[in-house]
């Protein structure tokens, strides 16, 4: 079974694994997700209606309201947060959101996770060591 390994920069430490949920579209927090269900609610978003609860969320970065961190903070308190997050573009919104979500988080990868990880792949994130191990769903 083949495993792909990515290296990134630690944003929030910790180790976690789970099924990948991947989007190429940036995510809004306030007005973009429902923390009660962990679902994306932005009407024209490709993940609208899909829940990130217990997934390894792979996305380009954050957009929209400054309520980003607060909404993902509420998701943690409601038990709907993702298990880990992997993103490309560092902004204050996504960095603060990762910190208060308190889940393993990585960014600044040696290869673009959006071109390698697909929905349903099994992903193990060791944020302390900056390593992402991907087992493809198809393999």
């Amino acid at each position: 079974m083949s495993m792909i390994v990515l290296h990134g920069r630690k944003v929030v430490g910790g180790v976690s694994e789970g099924e990948a949920l991947v989007t190429r579209e940036t995510i809004s927090g306030w007005g973009g997700i429902d923390p009660r269900t962990g679902k994306v609610v932005e009407t024209r978003h490709e993940l609208c209606g899909v829940s990130f609860k217990d997934k390894i969320l792979v996305f380009p970065g954050a957009k929209g309201s400054s309520g980003w961190s607060q909404y993902f903070h509420l998701a943690r308190l409601a038990g709907t947060a993702p298990k880990a997050i992997l993103y490309n573009r560092t902004t204050t919104k996504v960095a603060l959101g990762a910190v208060v979500m308190r889940v393993p988080a990585l960014t600044d990868f040696d290869r673009d996770p959006l071109s390698i990880i697909e929905d349903g792949d099994w992903v193990r994130v060791d944020a302390d060591r900056g390593i992402v191990e991907i087992t493809k769903k198809s393999s």
């Binding site: 400054s66 961190s69 903070h73 902004t91 204050t92 919104k93 603060l96 208060v100």
Partner: peptide, 20 residues
Amino acid sequence: NTEGRESTGAASITGRIPYF
């Protein structure tokens, strides 16, 4: 920067924010 609820709370009582 676009700060959040938590970072503005911390800034209010320290007078500091990340230089970024």
